[in-house]
Nucleic acid binder design. Sequence first.
DNA 1: AATTAGACTCGGAACC
DNA 2: TACTTCCGAGTCTAAT
Length: 273
Amino acid sequence: MPELPEVETVVSLLKTLVVHEVIESVEIYWNNIIGEPNVTTFRNNIEQQVITDVTRRGKYIIFALSNGHLVSHLRMEGKYYVYDEKVEKDKHTHVIFNFKSGKEMHYHDTRKFGKMYLYPKNEPLAILSKLGYEPWDQDLSADALLDLAKRRSISIKAFLLDQSVIAGIGNIYVNEILFTTKIHPAQPVNTLSKKQFDAIIKATASILSAAIESGGTTIRSYTSSLGVTGLFQQQLNVHNRQNEACNVCGSDIEKIVVAQRGTYLCPICQSIQ
DNA sequence: AATTAGACTCGGAACC
DNA sequence: TACTTCCGAGTCTAAT
């Protein structure tokens, strides 16, 4: 369920629901959800900590704790549900946080791809260390992207999906960004101009902002946790619109494969250079 | 010039 | 019918 706007939506909701909660105990039903440290240490160290804030970096959720940080990635299908009282776990509930207040937070993940990492206070959040610019970072410039792109032969689509370049863009939004900027997804990234990178930076910020405004995009597994449904799918220009009319020129939207991912584009508006 | 460490790219696996 | 990332194998490249 996760690209930056969906994660941001979840973070906003979790902030209202779990800040100040005290983690009394944690039940772990699928060990591989815990990335580090080992399951026993994770459980022992997180118990009795207070959740003091919930924030985001790229597609990661960061729970600030009284004595460290819990970092969580939802990968394809992870979801959090918060309940006021005890609720039976279902088949795909893999971690339950029991709060002192009696509330519970359940981590649910059909494919079990998601991961959690617990770091002690004052230790670096190692899993975040390779992430690139946040989309609104003042240091994110066309020159910076040009520099990162110049030695690389991959497509612009693969480049924008690389989380070490810009953090938070996934398959839905990269399709939209490249449509808005009229760039073919398979265009080699070392052939783009400074002007094109400028356009990409602007489009990224405006598309992601609009998506956050709409509560994200509801596609397949994503109805954001807590039962909230995103509405941005109503504003998608190309993603999931194979054979529908381009909103700019009326041509049929095509679906191809680029960077091993389903890729939607308007073949007229986005010609390869 | 040949070797090599490191960067990069691609494809498969994680899950069921 | 795929909203993600990690890892290993193979390839390229800059430095020695």
